[in-house]
Design a protein around this nucleic acid. Structure first.
Lengths: 223, 223
DNA sequence: GCCGTTCGATACGCGAATGTATGGGATACA
DNA sequence: TGTATCCCATACATTCGCGTATCGAACGGC
């Protein structure tokens, strides 16, 4: 263990970045299949096409890999969501239903990702620093989501009455209904109930405004 | 390995029942603290005050113990909920808010239990037979919850418009908001938003009826 | 193409967890 | 109280996963 070993690499090769990414991708697959707790370093390496040497050269523990992978993936999903909402903002006019569909399509219900997230959440509830990471992520979701959702709703003829309430409600409803959809993947009714619940929530946290869509949609939203 | 070894015990002593129960209790604690995947047979046994001999005499694997424990605990929670709702049904008259409070109090947000459930859910999504177990449990929740909730709502001056929709919505909202409460345990606002969301949902899936509480509560529920 | 640096494969030792086989003490029942 | 049965502790062999140390090969700069 000389000084050069502990020193940070002067130049990071592109090969390194690639292996790191492959390990991150493999981690998602393995964790989803085996569960994080039951996964081993060997399994991840084998899936990625490496041996343990590559792993310990890039990460210090499975925990670190788990965190890095989760942050990368959830960040990517947030980017997708942001993009979808911004695209929505460029359109001429949007009905509430169309807007809802667009948002729900931007956040697909992926069982592999859900399993990983569920375990990450449980893990975070045991670890204060991880809990802060998750809380920060939720904060970021709100910061991204709320202005764009609010804008979309205004364009659809609705004014948001409780911003933070709506934000938390949307996240909670998403999480809660995602499980139901995954537990009964073949039951179309579950997905319809999910959409219905979203409509109710959006309706509850916003009030009608006078616009082309407002009168037409009120009938569909209220009952 | 003689015939008597493989044969089922003729008489089951009360000691056996006790150790089995202690193992189940210890499992909840250990799984909550360490995570199911990271837990070992030894840890559970030590926590329960036994050695591995006791474990392998009662269960064949950690998976089996996990399932048994989860079924017992979730069954007990369902019993609590049923009892609370039935007690609610014996009261003279109840306001919607009081009813909601009673139900929420009957299903306390326990972080240890949540962690375990999160991991069990992820586990169930990997295992078809476990998935059926969870689906059946959700079915049972609905069967218990709906008639009693509906009755309580009627007594509070509200008629349910979509039974199954309400049932699934309540479960989803509970699950989704429970995480938020656990991630920010000291933030009272999160809990208030949770209650608020429940009110909105109950309101959305039921319509006012003419009763003592109906006019009074409409103002609080609708806006 | 040469050379210094970085990256990842291989080999090694260690500790931990598993499942089984067996024996002694506890328990139920007469 | 005696005894047949049951239940759990103990000991053992084995397998598995981890982390490190070392070395050849790939890489990037010149």
């Amino acid at each position: 263990m000389t000084a050069s070993d502990t020193a940070a690499p002067k130049r990071v090769t592109r090969r390194r970045a690639q292996t790191r990414q492959r390990l991150l991708d493999a981690a998602l697959e393995v964790f989803a299949e085996e569960g994080f707790g039951r996964s081993t370093v060997d399994q991840v390496c084998e899936r990625a096409g490496y041996t343990r040497g590559a792993f310990y050269s890039n990460f210090t523990s499975l925990d670190e890999l788990f965190l890095a992978m989760w942050e990368q993936r959830s960040g990517a999903m947030l980017d997708d969501l942001r993009e979808a909402l911004q695209r929505l903002g460029t359109l001429e006019s949007v009905s509430p239903d169309e807007a809802l569909r667009a948002v729900l399509d931007a956040v697909p219900i992926d069982d592999a990702w859900y399993r990983v997230t569920a375990e990450f959440t449980a893990h975070a509830l045991r670890n204060p620093s991880l809990r802060r990471v998750m809380a920060a992520r939720e904060e970021a979701i709100h910061d991204t989501l709320l202005p764009l959702v609010e804008a979309a709703l205004v364009r659809a003829g609705r004014r948001v009455t409780d911003r933070t309430g709506l934000g938390h409600a949307l996240v909670a409803v998403h999480d809660g209904t995602a499980v139901q959809c995954l537990l009964e993947p073949d039951d179309e009714a579950v997905r319809q109930r999910r959409e219905e619940l979203f409509r109710h929530v959006v309706n509850a946290y916003s009030s009608a405004y006078s616009t082309a869509y407002s009168t037409q949609s009120e009938g569909a939203l209220d009952e």
